[in-house]
Design a protein around this nucleic acid. Structure first.
Length: 507
RNA sequence: GGUCCCUUCGUCUAGGGGUUAGGACACAAGAUUUUCAUUCUUGAAACAGGGGUUCGAUUCCCCUAGGGACUACCA
């Protein structure tokens, strides 16, 4: 595989459900890979056992599958750079940590987390922030301050230790971000991050991430902006390993912000604010359920589309794109720098666009599933017609029923306001005449029915608008629905007559 | 607090040294639909502030303010 080959990875950790921010990151990686005929890799970063959540990995796979963002390489797909789960790559990392120690880029630290916590607390009372860095490491318990023999003794004892990166002093770190340009950091302001922990015999994110990206020949790291602060560390790690020549390019995506209020979108925002934050429904191990876009009735393409436009645009006025169009149009230099507030209303609009673009027969099939569950059966052709009548006015397939129930069953109650406005003294008399006329009407098409009804209305000196509204009331239960004579034609003669007669006795 | 990132209508954004600063969502009004919705038309709505640079800045630079992220033996 050549060096110029695009290889990107989406590297979530299975600590819970992935929200749409994570999905957006996956999507941008996917689009970038497709655009460049590259490889999209899914790597599971499960180096923190304490935060491992049962089912989270499956959730990630299911979500990506639903959206069609299928990895080219990954735990399920395989590939020659596997394994793709960090917990299964365990034995790889230690030697790289050792290499850093040998080169003088890292050191052993023996301070207990309790001691460090105390230190942090103490600093805080002095309104300062503790950092394990080039200054404090000189006073702490590590292989830099301890003698070699004492270090070895501690390493061989039962006590736990960690390997920390030895961040150089007074060094200006330059990094290039494909979206933000050059970013500079002073190494003094950075701390000595833990790279490896003996207690679990596991690397931390930083080490595992760099080692795996290198080993998997990742060409571009496309991740959320929350990682920007660790970019200098990562750049230094590449330098320390002498991998600078093949260091991937970095692109930090703008964050997705809460629709209202402050901060980035979080897992807790969704159901509280009345919109899903998760791609598909998530049931936590404790049984709590968080709603998903799939269950809310969104089409996967619509979700991809709306997410793509959060932080990226084509530069044209087009907003509705198929995944193929996105794949060929996507480019990192059209990604925005600033965070994007998520707009649930526009999300619905995107789904509406996909819904109205869907052929009626497909919508009818989806709707038929719901009808079947209600024990309603009707020829699919007729459902198609009904769906076509109302699809312009809805955003979701799930709204179909409330817009069309009167095609399938008589209204069980009548809108009080409309009754008061329309159901006046002589109305029942006329309605009975109308039902009588219709019951003998032969040519049951909307045009013919309309003509006959109009004639009756004028011969009886009734007001057309008033009668229309009243007829609508008795047929659908309120003042809603598509063209009235189309409804009359579709529900048929018997239903029409029966509904009129029922209203006359009930109201 | 420290470090870093960001800043065009309410929101997502286009644009870019001279523009009537464009589009979309949402909102409002009108037309059509003898109802509802759709549709169409129209409207209101933005360059955070202050300094430079320049003939000219919303656009380039600096400062301020505001927002955000990070600041774990989490990712």
């Amino acid at each position: 595989m050549s060096q110029s080959q695009v290889r990107v990875r989406f590297a979530p950790s299975p600590t819970g459900p992935l929200h749409i921010g994570g999905i957006r990151t996956a999507l941008f990686n996917y689009l970038f890979a497709k655009k460049h005929n590259g490889t999209f890799i899914l790597r599971i970063e499960d180096t923190d056992q304490t935060r491992f959540v049962e089912g989270a990995e499956k959730y990630i796979n299911d979500s990506l599958e639903w959206l069609g963002l299928t990895p080219d390489e990954g735990v399920l797909q395989g590939g020659k750079f596997g394994p793709y789960k960090q917990s299964e790559r365990n034995e790889i990392y230690k030697k790289y940590a050792d290499e850093l120690i040998a080169k003088g880029w890292a050191y052993y630290a023996f301070d207990s987390s309790e001691d460090l916590d105390k230190l942090r607390a103490k600093y805080e009372t002095d309104k300062m922030t503790f950092a394990y860095d080039c200054q404090t490491r000189k006073q702490l318990c590590n292989s830099l301050t301890l003698s070699e023999s004492e270090t070895n003794q501690r390493l061989n004892s039962d006590g736990s230790w960690v390997i920390r990166f030895k961040m150089p002093e007074d060094f200006e770190i330059h990094a290039t971000d494909l979206i933000r340009g050059d970013v500079k950091f002073m190494s003094n302001t950075l701390d000595d991050k833990v790279l490896y922990k003996s207690a679990e015999n596991l690397p931390t994110y930083h080490l595992a991430n760099i080692v795996d990206d290198h080993l998997m020949e990742i060409s571009h790291v496309i991740r959320g902006e929350e990682w920007l602060p660790s970019l200098p560390l990562h750049v230094m790690l590449y330098k320390a390993f002498e991998w600078d020549k093949t260091m991937p390019h970095f692109a930090h995506l703008p964050l997705i912000l809460k629709p209202s209020g402050k901060g980035k979108l979080s897992k807790r925002d969704g159901d509280k604010e009345g919109f899903p934050v998760f791609p598909i429904q998530y049931e936590a191990p404790n049984g709590e359920i968080a709603s998903g876009y799939r269950e809310a009735g969104y089409f996967p393409d619509a979700v991809n589309n709306l997410l793509a436009l959060l932080g990226w645009n084509s530069g044209t006025e087009q907003e509705v794109f198929s995944i193929e169009e996105l794949s060929s149009l996507f480019s990192l230099d059209r990604v925005n720098k600033s965070g994007a507030r998520f707009d649930p209303e526009k999300a619905k609009w995107f789904n509406h666009q996909y819904l109205i673009a869907k052929p009626n027969n497909q919508l009818a099939e989806l709707f038929n599933l719901e009808l079947t569950s209600k024990n309603i059966s009707m020829p699919i052709e007729k459902i198609e017609t009904i769906v076509g009548l109302v699809k312009e006015r809805i955003n979701f397939v799930s709204e179909l029923w409330s817009q069309t129930f009167f095609f399938f069953e008589a209204p069980s109650n009548y809108d009080e306001k409309v009754v008061q406005k329309r159901w006046k003294d002589q109305v029942p008399k006329f309605m009975l005449k109308l039902s009588q006329m219709l019951s003998t009407h032969e040519n049951w098409t909307c045009d013919s029915i309309k003509e006959a009804t109009s004639q009756l209305i004028s011969s009886e000196n009734e007001n057309f608008g008033n009668i229309m509204n009243t007829l609508r009331l008795v047929l659908v239960g309120g003042s809603f629905g598509p063209d009235l004579f189309t409804i009359v034609e579709l529900i048929g003669k018997d239903q029409t007559v029966a509904r009129i007669n029922k209203a006359c006795t009930v109201l």
